[in-house]
């Protein structure tokens, strides 16, 4: 029964390879105090949990059927869309930090406030078909409730590693610099996800 938890614990570092590049600039760009950081991480994890529970429910319902249908091409397309969405959200959030009062920056502030970004980017990382996620998915076979429960345990296992983000407020001496670095990184990372991992790969869409 504890297999998903152990799987999460053992594959957690690999999870960080995808979640880290999204979560680190997201949290650095805001640099909250301890309580605020705790709440922000909770929002991010809630989004991630929703993603996992959803995945557990669907996979539990369809069993291996869905996985069999998930050919490499379909997986590829799913990833492409997910990269573009993550990129778009990060770009909007990055733009929202720019000091311009009007135009795109103002719209970005409205569409993607920090709290929303934390929840939605968490959700996007929860639905990412990374190798640990797929390893977990192959183990879900016994109905939606068990599926959700397994993914919940997997979530616990992998999320433990994200707790390191609670260390950020300890760096408050460098708050201004870290915030600035986080904001620029956010824009760059958003552009990278959206353009280089998304748009430029659309040629692969046809297979």
């Amino acid at each position: 029964m504890l297999e998903p938890l152990l799987l999460g614990l053992s594959t957690g570092p690999s999870c960080m390879i995808f979640c880290g590049p999204v979560a680190l600039p997201l949290f650095m760009s805001d640099m909250k105090e301890h309580r605020g950081q705790g709440a922000a991480l909770l929002r991010f994890l809630t989004g991630r949990l929703i993603g996992y529970i959803l995945a557990g429910f669907i996979l539990g319902l369809t069993g291996q059927l869905l996985l069999n249908y998930l050919s490499p091409l379909v997986k590829d397309r799913f990833m492409l869309i997910s990269y573009m969405l993550v990129g778009l959200m990060m770009l909007l959030r990055g733009l929202a930090f720019l000091p311009k009062e009007k135009g795109l920056c103002q719209k970005a502030r409205k569409v993607m406030p920090q709290k929303r970004a934390e929840l939605f980017l968490g959700l996007a990382t929860g639905l990412n078909l990374c190798p640990p996620f797929l390893a977990m998915a192959t183990r879900v076979t016994q109905g939606p409730v068990k599926g959700m429960f397994s993914f919940f345990l997997f979530f616990i296992g992998t999320s433990i590693y994200l707790v390191v983000l609670m260390l950020l407020p300890f760096l408050k001496k460098h708050k201004e610099a870290l915030q600035g670095i986080g904001r620029i990184t956010m824009l760059m990372m958003g552009g990278y996800f959206f353009f280089f991992l998304g748009i430029l790969q659309l040629g692969r869409w046809q297979g």
């Binding site: 880290g20 680190l24 610099a177 600035g180 620029i184 760059m188």
Partner: peptide, 10 residues
């Protein structure tokens, strides 16, 4: 530093 962080994370 942002550039460094970006290429490392990316």
């Amino acid at each position: 530093k942002a550039m460094l962080l970006f290429v490392v994370l990316g």
